[in-house]
Design a protein around this nucleic acid. Structure first.
Lengths: 364, 364
DNA sequence: CTGAAAGCGCTTACAG
DNA sequence: CTGAAAGCGCTTACAG
């Protein structure tokens, strides 16, 4: 299996059996058992309660320094690590938060998660990520998963589920912040963070109009934030007395963008500008236009939405709408933590509008 | 708070107090308690055991159809969802897997996670993501976290920790697959998946040499896979009788690449090709070169490693090394599941080498 | 066919 | 200062 420098290789292949011998010596069932407080109690001749007290440094109840030392040392020796699951059961808290996102490979979401995790971390919470694939089935599965009590709080981006469904599933048992893509509506326990998608889309459309474009198409997918962005697009077009046209994409991926544009180009494509509902769609659009021999922005101007890192790497660099996903994630985690650890416990749901920014580059 | 179409807005601001009223009506402590099996038992007049039996469809022990129906209905009515934490405590299994990655915003990792999650999902496992930031401290924290029993298995990408540290922390209590960046060495319980980083780097360097480049620098960071890739670079250069030069980056981000190249350009930069240890570094390099008025590939050729989605979007498109992160993630999850649910339980650790592929584009 | 009981590993009043 | 005991919500032998 010593591979030469040949760049083409074969699928997953086992490379070593040496390890078999190594393993034989270890790993009988016993080695796998994790030491518990009881083990430490037995080893030190103390009670399990005393062990728990010492290990948790409970202050009012002072165990004698000598005993404490012995317990601590034995714990160390046995490699004791508290069983978080057991602790969670007792405390009814998991100290874990989750991010539910439609597609972790869309660069906008890792940024959200990163910001979220930095705040969660600082407060001693772990972070889970649940990828819904943007489908109703998997969004429901995420909801079921939430109901099972894995986490204390969640930042959720849902494309399909409505408020009612969320409320019945969650029932205030897990703190929730939603990245809202529709217009804000108050909710009993759910906080919402959002940007004004319609306003942003309208502003971007207006930029295109101001540049003299008259035949502008929007490439969008009606789910998630697509609807609001289309609304903004329509508003701007209508205000300018122009006819809006929507090119429908199957989802928000680059591939979907390329596909939809290819289909459109096969017909009688006469638009001078395409406003894509997100950057991945815009990237797909640009690729298809280029492949068809149309120049961007000379023949067709293109604009996107999100300002993912690739946006400024494109040639021409992509005109788009920026919101700070990282800041949004961070802020959302802080909302959850304030709700869980106070002072916001029991506070009714609120909406928080975050700023957006038009980023004008060369593609439009 | 009705925002106009102004693109510049203010930081997080509260938008609605309407919800306060809505909330008043609900959410007193009682509503928050999740129904348990005991609640169902009380409501139906059956024992908690019977409830558990019915809800878990334990086959040999048949509860009468009538009682079963009543229990099921009551469970539905009360909105019963099993407490996963309690179940986990009893079963000593969490049915959760984790991915430990250095940086979720590096597009190569979401792909890994996506592949992983698709396999985990199919087997009924949930997936957690832990971001280590590529620092030793946070990698250790990840290890501690593992020891706490949150998950049954993990796919880990560590840049700093060595085998010994992993083994003491994990002790065969959690199944582990490591994306190995050093040369493969067998391990008692840890499976390893990897590509031959040295061979890939050597092959890519050879491509540059074959194109006539003599002054080739490698932009790299010595942690993680950087070391092996440098080794391959050195091997190729040495074989060709050329002098290798390493430009050191602080980490594997685009920013670090840009910084390191800027520093290098400030000196007496005389290289005709730069081979970056990953694509983000390559992207940073290209940006800096362009800013300095150097053309790619005419003045300086650039190659990367990973083939992240942006690589082909760049102008010029980036020459790089591709491995299928998605396939690697999928495969790793399958390894874990086979270990946890059989048939590979207790099998010694093995190494699995995956293929790589040189992707020659315009940047070199 | 059904229930009482023990126990998973921990925390937390409550007695001594 | 220390320990016996109850309980978190569940599963799983074990009796009836």
């Amino acid at each position: 299996m010593k591979n030469s420098t040949s760049p083409q290789q074969v699928p997953p292949a086992e490379t070593s059996h040496l390890s078999a011998a190594v393993n034989k010596a270890e790993a009988p069932a016993e080695a796998l058992r994790r030491p518990t407080q009881r083990d430490i109690a037995v080893a030190t001749g103390m009670s399990q309660t005393a062990v728990s007290l010492v290990l948790n440094r409970v202050e009012p109840c002072t165990v004698s320094a000598e005993v404490r030392e012995r317990i601590l040392q034995t714990a160390q020796q046995l490699g004791y690590v508290p069983n978080r699951v057991a602790r969670n059961l007792k405390s009814a808290r998991t100290r874990t938060l989750a991010c539910i996102v439609p597609d972790i490979t869309n660069p906008t979401y890792p940024a959200l998660v990163r910001g979220f995790q930095s705040a969660a971390d600082a407060a001693g919470y772990d972070t889970m990520i649940f990828d819904t694939d943007g489908t109703p089935e998997r969004e429901r599965r995420a909801l079921q998963w939430l109901a099972q009590g894995h986490v204390d709080g969640v930042l959720a981006v849902f494309f399909h589920l409505d408020e009612a469904e969320l409320l019945t599933a969650v029932r205030g048992r897990v703190a929730m912040v939603q990245v809202e893509s529709q217009a804000y509506r108050p909710s009993p326990y759910i906080d919402k963070v959002y940007i004004d998608n319609a306003a942003a889309a309208q502003a971007m459309t207006q930029v295109l109009i101001d540049k003299g474009h008259q035949r502008i198409a929007m490439l969008s997918c009606p789910i998630g934030p697509g609807a609001e962005r289309q609304r903004g697009f329509h508003a701007a077009m209508q205000k300018a007395g122009l006819a809006p046209h929507i090119i429908a994409a199957d989802d928000f991926t680059q591939a979907a963008g390329a596909r939809a544009m290819a289909a459109e180009l096969a017909g009688d494509f006469r638009y001078s500008a395409v406003f894509a509902a997100n950057d991945l769609l815009a990237i797909g659009t640009m690729a298809t236009l280029r492949a068809a021999g149309r120049r961007v922005p000379d023949d067709v101007a293109v604009a996107g939405f999100d300002d993912i890192p690739s946006a400024q790497l494109l040639q021409p660099a992509l005109t788009t709408v920026r919101r700070s996903e990282q800041a949004m994630g961070h802020f959302a985690a802080e909302l959850l933590i304030a709700r869980l650890d106070g002072p916001d416990t029991g506070r009714p749901g609120r909406g928080f509008e975050l700023p957006f920014q038009l980023v004008l580059r060369d593609s439009a």
